[in-house]
């Protein structure tokens, strides 16, 4: 067995990200290289926190991290020093099990102390196994029972419209769902509802990584034709490679240009993206955490990429 020896990642000092103010309207034209490096720094922290926690969901956290990175750095208006700034854009992570994909960027940006990441899933921690908004700054809604986030996001978006001026909403709302999650009926209630209420400041991003606990989504309960379904419900629909920062940024720009309909972005992703160990077994790494050796293997691969 080849076990690369790597430095304790908790002792690694993350780069000082020189970012423009994040409370300006997106896109902020953050260089793709910065986005890529930020996402990989987050991957390092995710694999470390999951390894230490001994339980959790690596596959779906890795598939979503390029999405959350782009949202936090390039797209959403927010203030890490003022998490409850009333005009902030909101992100609801409906696939709550992937919450490490929020904790890691929140720590990189200063919402959380980075050493708090290592308390994930421990008794007394603000970092619950699934998102808990009453405990953790930067978390907008408690999720973890699948299918509920889009409705909550719709309510937030409606508040943003009510508080806005004319067609300009006071803030925008983003919701990340899984693909397996789309099997829940409530998602389609919200899908039917949002165009009726013209919440054009709402964007749902489906992290379609193809896997769920009992197997591949296409085998368990196929969703296709997925884009046609959202189109039939009168959404503005875009399909992208969910790991391609440029494509995702363009889709978010297109969503912002919409003034009548909500936008649905179908992000085709790979479960475990960015770690060859995880990518080898899409379904297996849904809810299993790496051993120390496996974690080190993933860390070594990412460090190699970061150079």
């Amino acid at each position: 067995m080849t076990t690369p020896t790597v430095a304790d990642i908790t002792q690694r000092k993350p780069p000082a990200w020189s970012l423009p103010p994040l409370d300006t309207p997106g896109s902020r034209a953050i260089p793709v290289d910065t986005l890529r490096r930020f996402a990989d720094e987050c991957r390092l922290d995710i694999v470390e926190m999951l390894c230490r926690a001994g339980s959790g969901h690596p596959g779906g956290s890795f598939s979503a991290i390029n999405l959350t990175t782009t949202l936090f750095l390039d797209e959403m208006r927010h203030r890490p020093h003022e998490p409850r700034w009333p005009e902030r854009d909101r992100l609801v992570l409906s696939k709550g099990h992937a919450v490490p994909s929020l904790y890691a960027p929140l720590a990189q940006l200063g919402y959380l102390r980075r050493d708090e990441l290592w308390t994930l899933r421990r008794l007394g921690s603000r970092l619950q196994g699934h998102p808990a908004n009453m405990l953790c700054p930067g978390i907008e809604a408690s999720t973890g029972s699948l299918g509920q986030g889009l409705s909550v996001a719709q309510g937030m978006a409606l508040a943003g419209l009510m508080d806005g001026k004319g067609k300009d909403p006071a803030f925008r709302v983003y919701c990340i769902t899984g693909d397996g999650e789309l099997q829940e009926g409530q998602v389609w209630e919200a899908a039917m509802s949002a165009p009726r209420h013209k919440v054009h400041n709402l964007t749902v991003i489906m992290d379609c990584n193809g896997g769920q606990i009992d197997g591949l989504v296409k085998d368990v309960l196929d969703l296709e034709p997925l884009a046609d379904k959202w189109k039939a419900f009168n959404w503005h629909v875009l399909t992208i490679d969910g790991h391609d920062f440029v494509q995702f940024r363009a889709a978010l720009q297109a969503a912002r240009a919409e003034t009548t309909r909500p936008t649905a972005i179908i992000a085709r992703t790979t479960k475990g993206h960015g770690a060859s160990l995880f990518e080898k077994d899409l379904v297996g790494w849904h809810g299993k955490t790496p051993t120390r050796d496996e974690a080190n293997q993933v860390i070594a691969e990412i460090l190699g990429r970061l150079g």
Partner: peptide, 8 residues
């Protein structure tokens, strides 16, 4: 859910 979002 929508009401929850509005309240939040």
């Amino acid at each position: 859910g929508t009401a929850a979002g509005l309240a939040l």
